[in-house]
Structure formats: structure tokens, C-alpha cells
């Protein structure tokens, strides 16, 4: 009798445990997983409004996607940003974290706040700030002219390569401090005495960094890498607000192009846009998996 009562108490607790999860789980299922499946289904359809029907052949949107030069260009642009910006940003962030983790350094709090400050503004805000700084009639051109480096104003956002350059610079500016905070948190978990010991053993700064900091921070590095890849593959705000994809769509990102095909000006091509968005989803999944695989060296 006594035992039975106790069992039911445990069962009651078990049931309560599930109750706590139900709301959050249901919302993720309805707001993430269900739409994901819907997007997959939609990607096999074509047409708009009442003419929205199954595509023929079934993979029509996917064939179209790989033949769409503009989409391929947006994939290329996104990867260009990814390959150039992410490594520079993460190396800079880890370097700054290492410098700021020095107990002998004065004004550490102030430096940290300054480097972290760009996180206080929204992505749209900083895109517009950079747009004004790099305007043809703007600060950067004024400074370069005064320094006699250029004689004619550069149309930074109106030329493919300079526009890409500005986007990359802006991204590095906005996200370096954000990533640095993760590394600082990771470094603070490492005992300071480990460094003291290394110093006594005669390891120089570079060796300490490469053979101690990096391995100890590895889990954090992998996490920031995945986050950055995920973020870059979904780049939207900067492409829209800094260059509006231009000139002639040479700086457009995947998300921006997908948006233009679904909610932008012109036709709402939900089927095609869904196919492209599924491509992005698969890319994110593959890159995350590679990262986890590379990072997992437990043997």
C-alpha cells in the first residue's frame, strides 16, 4: 500500500515534468518544424494565387534554381563573405580576448566595453551608418581626398568590389566584439595558474597562445564558427540596407534574393523561393555537420 502510493507520487512528478515542456515543444513544432515541412512541400509547387499547383516535372524549381545565374551569383556572394569575413573576424576576436585577459593590463573593462559596443546597435542601424560613412559624398572619401590618396570620389557602394569590401568591413566591425565575449568567457574558465606555469616553463606568448589557449578554447571556437557560418549564410539586413544588392545584384545575398522572389517587388513566387530556401537550409546543416565532425577529436 505504502509502496503503491509512493509510486504514484513519482508518476505524478514525471507527468508534471512533461507538462513543463509541452508549451515550448508545441510552439517549436508549430512555428519551426511544421513550416519547414510546408516549405519543402511548397518547393514542389509552382505558379501564384489560384494557379498554385504541383510543378511538372516535380523538381522543376530545383532545376530552375541551378540554372538561375542570379541565384548562383547570390550563393557565390554569400560564400565570398563567409570565406573572407569569418576567419578574419574570429582571429581578431580571439586575439582581442587573449590581450584583454591579461591581469596586468589597465582599463580592461573600458577596452572591453568599447570593443563590445557595436553589439548595441541593430543590424539595420549599423548598415545605414556605414552607408552614410561610405557615401560618395561622405566621410571616407573626404578623408582620403584630404590625405591626397584619391583625387576623385570613389563610389564605394556603386561598384561591385568596393561594395563587397564595405559589407565585409561592416560585418567585421559589428560582430568581432560579440565573438570576443564568448572567448573571454571561455578564457576565464581557464585557471590563470596554467598560464603562470607556462611562463615559468619558458613558453613565449605565441606558444602559449597556440598550444594552450587554442586547444582549451576549442569547444568555444567551434561554437562561434557554427554561429558565424549560420549567420553569414542568412545575411539579409546588410545586403538590403547597405547596397540593396547592387550594383546590378552583384552583392546580393541568398536570403535577400529569396526575399525578393517572395515578398519583394514583382511576383510572389512562393514555390521557387521555397526551393531556394531549402537549399540554404541544407547548406547550413552540411556546414554545421562538417564543423562538428572536424571539432570532435575525442578518441
Amino acid at each position: 500500500m505504502e509502496k503503491k502510493k509512493k509510486m504514484s507520487l513519482v508518476a505524478k512528478q514525471r507527468a508534471a515534468g512533461w507538462m513543463f515542456l509541452i508549451l515550448a515543444t508545441a510552439m517549436i513544432v508549430v512555428m519551426s518544424f511544421y513550416p519547414m515541412v510546408q516549405a519543402l512541400i511548397t518547393s514542389f509547387k509552382t505558379g501564384t494565387g489560384k494557379n498554385f499547383k504541383w510543378a511538372d516535372p516535380w523538381n522543376y524549381n530545383y532545376i530552375r534554381m541551378f540554372q538561375d545565374k542570379m541565384f548562383m551569383k547570390s550563393v557565390g556572394n554569400t560564400f565570398l563573405y563567409l570565406i573572407i569575413q569569418v576567419p578574419i573576424m574570429l582571429i581578431l576576436a580571439i586575439l582581442l580576448a587573449q590581450l584583454l585577459n591579461n591581469k596586468d593590463l589597465k582599463f580592461r573593462g573600458l577596452f572591453r566595453t568599447c570593443v563590445f559596443l557595436p553589439c548595441a546597435v541593430s543590424l539595420v542601424s549599423y548598415s545605414l551608418i556605414f552607408k552614410s560613412i561610405f557615401a560618395t559624398q561622405g566621410l571616407v572619401n573626404m578623408i582620403l581626398t584630404k590625405m591626397h590618396i584619391i583625387s576623385e570620389n570613389i563610389n564605394w557602394l556603386g561598384q561591385t568590389n568596393t561594395a563587397r569590401f564595405v559589407i565585409i568591413i561592416a560585418l567585421i566591425w559589428r560582430w568581432t566584439g560579440y565573438n570576443m565575449v564568448f572567448y573571454l568567457a571561455g578564457l576565464q574558465n581557464i585557471e590563470y595558474s596554467v598560464y603562470e606555469a607556462a611562463k615559468i616553463d619558458g613558453a613565449n606568448a605565441w606558444k602559449t597562445f597556440w598550444y594552450m589557449t587554442v586547444p582549451l578554447l576549442k569547444p568555444v571556437i567551434i561554437m562561434t564558427f557554427i554561429m558565424s557560418i549560420n549567420g553569414t549564410l542568412q545575411l539579409f539586413d546588410e545586403s538590403v540596407n547597405l547596397t540593396n544588392g547592387g550594383p546590378a545584384n552583384t552583392t546580393i545575398t541568398m536570403s535577400h534574393y529569396i526575399y525578393n522572389n517572395s515578398f519583394g517587388q514583382g511576383v510572389a513566387n512562393f514555390g521557387y523561393a521555397s526551393a531556394m530556401s531549402f537549399f540554404v537550409l541544407i547548406l547550413v546543416a552540411i556546414l554545421a555537420a562538417i564543423n562538428l565532425k572536424v571539432g570532435d577529436t575525442r578518441d
Binding site: L21, A24, T25, I28, M31, S32, F33, Y34, P35, M36, Q38, A39, T42, N230, L233, Q234, F236, M254, S255, I258, Y259, S262, F263, F270, A273, S274, M276, S277, F278, V280, L281, V284, A285, A288
Partner: peptide, 22 residues
């Protein structure tokens, strides 16, 4: 279940925006 829910982190916003809009 937790592991499954975590996977939702990888779903990009552009992939869900059209069905969510509908």
C-alpha cells in the same frame, strides 16, 4: 526530445517565412 528541439536552431528564417506568412 531536447536534441530534436535543438535542431530547430539550424532552420534558417528564410525557410520558414513563407509558410509562417501563410
Amino acid at each position: 526530445l531536447f536534441g530534436i528541439l535543438l535542431m530547430a536552431m539550424m532552420i534558417p528564417g528564410v525557410a520558414t517565412m513563407i509558410p509562417l506568412f501563410t
